[in-house]
Structures are given as C-alpha cells and as structure tokens.
C-alpha cells in the first residue's frame, strides 16, 4: 500500500494549483524514494516534472511502485476542501481504484476524508538528460512573475538574455516594445530579494510568454525561481520546495 502524510498540506494544494491549468491529467508515480509526476501539456510544448522526496513527508510508506492516474481539475476540487493549515494524508491500496485524502486540522478537531477515483492514463515518459547549462539565474519568484505578466501585455514572446552581470527580458508587439533588466544582486541582508547569475557563456533564447505565465503560478511554492538556459535547448524554470522537493517546468524555445 501507499501512505504518505504531509504536515504542511498547503504545499500539495499549491503544487496542484500551479500545474492544473497546464496539464489536464497525469500519473502520479510513487516508489520508495518519493512521489513524482512527469507530464507534457496538451500541445507538447512544455513538460512538468514534480518530485517530492520521501523524507519530506512526516510519514511515508510505499510497499510497491504504483502509478495513480488523476484528472488535475478533480484533484484540485478535493484539495480545495483542505484548510491551509491542515495536514494531508494520502492513502491507496496496491490495486485500488481510488486514492483517499485525509485532512486534519491543526488541533485535530476536524477530520475529513475524500476519495478520488483513479483513472488509466496513457502517458509518454521522457528521459531528461543531466546537462550543464550556459547560464543559471536565480531571481525572486515574485519578480519573475511580475516580469512575465507585464511583458505579456506587450508581446507574445520574450527574449531572455543573460550576461555576466544581468539578465534581460525583452519583448515587442503591436503597441510597442519593452525590456526589463535585473542586475546581479547578492543581497546578504535580504536573501529573498537576491538575484544571482552563474554563467559559462552568454546566452539569449526566445520563449512563449503564455507558458512562462502559466509556470509562474508556482510562485507561492518558493521565494526564488531558478532559470537554466543553454543555446538551442529548453529552458528549465525550477521552483525548489524547501525541505521537500522541486517543481520544474521545461519549455522548448521558439
């Protein structure tokens, strides 16, 4: 059987809210090392990869590797019924056709159980090679969210260019053009506001803003987002979930 208890249930709510508009349904794979998901959006332009480590859960048990197919909209409906401070326990039998979500309020006064029907989902698993990137940029996630939102009101695509000292986001459209530059700033006093650039080679790539805006829905998961860029390769937009795992988005360049 599979059983996992997440003390900070809000994390699971935030993960599902971050991906539910991008992917319709997906298999959640559980094994000894943790809980993961890999899925492409319906246009096959981007890929979502979630991994929550077993040790990030308060309690984790997985006797056999299982894959649980769920419709994200339905999972979201159920998780919206959990309080933000609730602990969430997920349970499923090895050959079960449902997954049970148990929500416990902090003082354990309220205990609720919701069963979600599982479904068979055909999904293609892609191998993501380990790569060394030309540039890695760490920016406050709220800043990234604001940039891609602001630029989407001007154009459809953004050119992200990284040099040693700064990362520049540029777009243009019918009404004009815009560019936003973020300088490297390793703020010691306020680490959550720091912008850090690690560069092997300057790089400039163009991406659809629509997808980057969708990825930015993961902002509540982490104070920073990490962008990894290499010439002619998909960008990785990565949110580290403190002590638990990561949510990564891969987007093919234009």
């Amino acid at each position: 059987m599979f059983e996992a208890r997440l003390a900070q249930g809000a994390l699971l709510k935030k993960v599902v809210e971050a991906i539910k508009d991008l992917i319709e349904d997906a298999n959640f794979d559980c094994n000894n090392s943790g809980f993961s998901l890999q899925a492409m959006d319906s246009s096959h332009v981007s890929l979502v990869a979630l991994s929550l480590r077993a040790d990030g859960f308060e309690h984790y048990r997985c006797d056999r590797n299982i894959s649980m197919g769920m419709k994200l909209a339905n999972l979201s409906k159920i998780l919206k019924c959990a309080g933000n401070d609730d602990a969430i326990t997920m349970k499923s039998e090895d050959n079960g056709d449902t997954i049970t979500f148990m929500f416990e309020s902090p003082n354990q006064e309220r205990l609720s159980e919701f069963d979600l029907k599982l479904m068979d989902i055909d999904s293609e698993h892609l191998g993501i090679p380990e790569a060394e990137y030309d540039a890695t940029v760490k920016v406050p996630s709220s800043e990234f969210q604001r940039i891609v939102k602001d630029l989407a009101s001007i154009g459809d695509t953004v050119e992200i260019s990284v040099t040693k000292d700064a990362v520049k986001f540029s777009t243009s459209g019918d009404i004009g053009s815009a560019n936003i530059m973020c300088r490297q700033n390793k703020s010691v006093d306020k680490p959550e506001e720091s912008t850090e650039i690690d560069i092997n080679e300057p790089v400039a790539l163009t991406f659809a803003l629509r997808y980057l805006n969708s990825f930015a829905k993961a902002t509540p998961l982490s104070p920073h987002v990490v962008l990894k860029l290499s010439k002619d390769l998909p960008v990785v937009v990565e949110y580290h979930i403190p002590d638990v795992g990561r949510l990564g988005f891969y987007l093919a360049p234009k």
Partner: peptide, 14 residues
C-alpha cells in the same frame, strides 16, 4: 504558436 517547437523533440522517450 507559430514557430513553436515541441518539447518531445528535445528529450527522448524512456
């Protein structure tokens, strides 16, 4: 989505 490449073109199927 004109000119947009597929992500599957970059990563091989497992």
């Amino acid at each position: 989505l004109a000119g947009q490449r597929s992500i599957a073109a970059f990563f091989s199927a497992k």
